[in-house]
Structures are given as structure tokens and as C-alpha cells.
Design a protein around this nucleic acid. Sequence first.
DNA 1: GTGGTCTAGACCACG
DNA 2: GTGGTCTAGACCACT
Lengths: 126, 126, 126, 126
Amino acid sequence: MFRIQPHSPEPIFQQLVDQVKDAVTQGLLREGDKLPSVRELARQVTVNPNTVVKAYDLLERDGVIVRRQGAGCFLTGKTTNLDPAERQARLDAALAQAVSEGLHLDFDAAAIRAALEAALKRQSPG
Amino acid sequence: MFRIQPHSPEPIFQQLVDQVKDAVTQGLLREGDKLPSVRELARQVTVNPNTVVKAYDLLERDGVIVRRQGAGCFLTGKTTNLDPAERQARLDAALAQAVSEGLHLDFDAAAIRAALEAALKRQSPG
Amino acid sequence: MFRIQPHSPEPIFQQLVDQVKDAVTQGLLREGDKLPSVRELARQVTVNPNTVVKAYDLLERDGVIVRRQGAGCFLTGKTTNLDPAERQARLDAALAQAVSEGLHLDFDAAAIRAALEAALKRQSPG
Amino acid sequence: MFRIQPHSPEPIFQQLVDQVKDAVTQGLLREGDKLPSVRELARQVTVNPNTVVKAYDLLERDGVIVRRQGAGCFLTGKTTNLDPAERQARLDAALAQAVSEGLHLDFDAAAIRAALEAALKRQSPG
DNA sequence: GTGGTCTAGACCACG
DNA sequence: GTGGTCTAGACCACT
């Protein structure tokens, strides 16, 4: 289920974090589901267990999972634990970044809107 | 004219690159305009001269500026020198990234579209 | 009677130990009362029997219960069997820990005293 | 300045976190001050650099420090970034824990109050 | 078997 | 020189 690109500039632990959040937003994983154990996931994607631990640290920090000693890691069903103001600020920053990149690539507003719709179609569950 | 946020996770050299490109796409800087010298810019924004050198290297690599021996760095008016296929791929990747972030922040498609329009309104010269 | 929070960072066996001691200091359980069997308690709170065994081991070590062959576990009425010096040292350590936490949370002495009084009112039998 | 007890049940990284926060609440360290580098602190207290990294991770998560690539770690002056409701909840939990421990050790309210005052006198800057 | 902590040591990106 | 990432492998606590 998890796919890692070892030579990507995006850190491996970040790829794992994003893929877990993606799975939740797309309904593949739900509240109460159990993630693979640290050792098991490390084996599946052939990375060091410490790298998985770091990913799980971030997922716990973001309120995505809870860990239970000796039991495992379980999904809360959420993908963020930020307050509304902070969430909006991060959304705006993400889009501002994408728009800036698009303009730098010499695209106009229409082309950027089209790219957004394509991305939404790919990722949005609805 | 340049504003550096030293506490940002975005590297300082990257902030400089983006701000030069932003100035071009927004019409604040035009073809033929001269950038400050490395020393001068490093002094203005109080960063390490090596960091400015790195930013100018990247701007030259991207075709944004040309260096003329003993005269300084001049804007070409362009903000990219990539071929169309690569440009489209990067645009799609940028929007995919932003959409993913938005969905992880528990926003729906409408909220993400609204944030895009707000960002376009802020950044688009038209 | 026992309430376990599986998502708490406090280990489950520790929660059981504390709740038995709480029941004694608040007069809900008295000398001679019988605790449920390991199997029965494990069933009631849906935890692993080994976890209950560990809790009962600690309660016996602390002099809170005595085990009688084939009869079960009975309360002694005490919640500690430490000598006075050790008791005082642990009390001081517990309060030092709480004060440190309070100061880190940016509270002043008055707010910490108020929180202590509230906690005493809740827990003190008198 | 930092003192580590390697055989304490409290993890080393947690000891480091608490000592940095203590230093801030007691005015020994102030906003803008620079913490030792990861390697330097690891050398000072003779622990592995990764352990220091973990402590700095937590300090950053709590808003106590900001990290700047290639520059170092700097204090924000704060010791928490929680909202008021969460802060109060944690204060109450900390005192409840201490009171519970005190009652289990067979102390009465007066003795617990006295221990609190002693702890405040030791730790409070005022 | 699970997560939690720690060590040892390497390579890269940034300023 | 600084922080960021990753690997390899050990030992302990909890269920």
C-alpha cells in the first residue's frame, strides 16, 4: 500500500506522513484502523525502522494517530488538529505558493485554474 | 525591496530567487533592469554573501538574469527557460501539492477554489 | 468500578494501581475488602490478564493488598509501606514536578496554589 | 550548565527539555539567546547527538526554540504554545497527580500544602 | 510482538 | 560549522 521514492528530494518520513493522510482523506483508512507496526512497515518499504518512527511521530503530533504501548498505532480519523485560523492560513499559503510557481512558469490564471481542477479531480473523493 | 524571513522553513536563497521572479511577473522589474551587486544585496538583507551568490547562480541557471563581466546582473524579462512539457508537469505538481495540503487540512473543493482565486487576485498582474 | 483510558500515556497497569489506592484513600474500599480475581478484572476492563497481574504484583509490593492462596486478594487498608524519610522525599518530588510543569505552562504561584486547592477539594476525603 | 542523570527513569531527552524550560522560567535564558549546537551539547553532556536532536525537536514543537538552517537554535522566550484552556487542563492534571501521590503516601492536606510552598520557594523566580 | 529510548556513525543542505 | 536525514543495531517497557 505504501510507495516510497528513495531518491526524491522529499524526505522518506514525509512521504509516509503524506501517504497516510492521503489514505484517510480518500477513505481508504478510517478511524480505529491499525497502521502496520514500525518494524513491519519498515520491512515493507525497505527503510530503517527509525525513519518510520519519525513519520509516526509527526502523525501523532498532527493528531492523525494515537500510539498505544505494546498494542500499535491507531487512526483517529482526523488529518489535522489545527485551529480554524491556522488551517485557513496554511491553505492560503499553499495556494499562494502554487500560484507563484505557476506565474513563474509563465502560465496565466486560466491555465492555473485548469490545473487546479485536474488536481481536484484526481484527489478529491467526491 | 527584498524582504527575508529568517525564521521561515524556506531557505533564504530560495526566498531571494522567488522574490526576484515575483518582481518580474508583477511588472516591478523589467528586461534590462540591473540587480544589486552581491555585496550590496547581502548588506541590504543582512545575509551571508555566499547565500546571495547561490541565489544569483540559480537565477542565471533559470534564465532569469544574465551576468555581464564587471557590469553586474541584468534581468532577461523571463522567469523560466524550461520547455513546455516540463513547465506543464511542474504546474501540475505544484497544484497537486496544494490540493493535497488543502484536503489534509480538511477543506473541500469549494474552499480550495476560493483560496486559489484569492491568491490569483493578490498575485496576478492583470 | 475501574475506568481505564487506553489512549492515556500512563501505562494501564499504573492506572489500575492508582485507582485501587485512590479507592482506599477515599474510603470506597477498606481493610479486608476483596479485589476481583485477575481474570474477572481483566474481563471487566477489557485488558490483557498479564497487565492485571502486573498491577496486583505492584499493589502487593506496596503493601496495599495481601494474596491468600486460593482465596484471592484482600486490602490491608494501607496505601504505602515506605519509611517516613522516603515518603517525604517522594512527596517533595511529586510537588516539585507539578510546580515545574505549572511554571512551564506560564502560571504564577497563585494560580498553582489555586489548582492545588481545587485538586485537594476533589480528592481529599475530609 | 546542563546536568544529565543517565540512569534516571526520566528519558535523557526529556531532562534536556525540562532544563531548557527551567532556564527560561528562571530568567537564565532569554528570547534570542542561542542554545549550544547539537554536536556541542552532545559533547558537553556526553550523550549521542541524536538524543539532543530529539530534545530540540520537542522544544521546537512546544514553541520554545526556533531552528535556523546552518545558523543554530534560538530561544523564543516562551515555554509553551498551548491555548489557555489546554494550559489550565494540564495544570489541573499535574496538581491532581501530585495530590493523588501525596494522599497515597498517607499525607494530609496540610502536609501537601507545605510541600507545595517549599517547591514554589525553590523554583519560583519571585 | 509492540512501541520507546539510545548509541554510533554517515552523508547532505544551508549560511 | 550548523541543522536535516538516514542507516544499523541494541536494550527496555508494555500488552
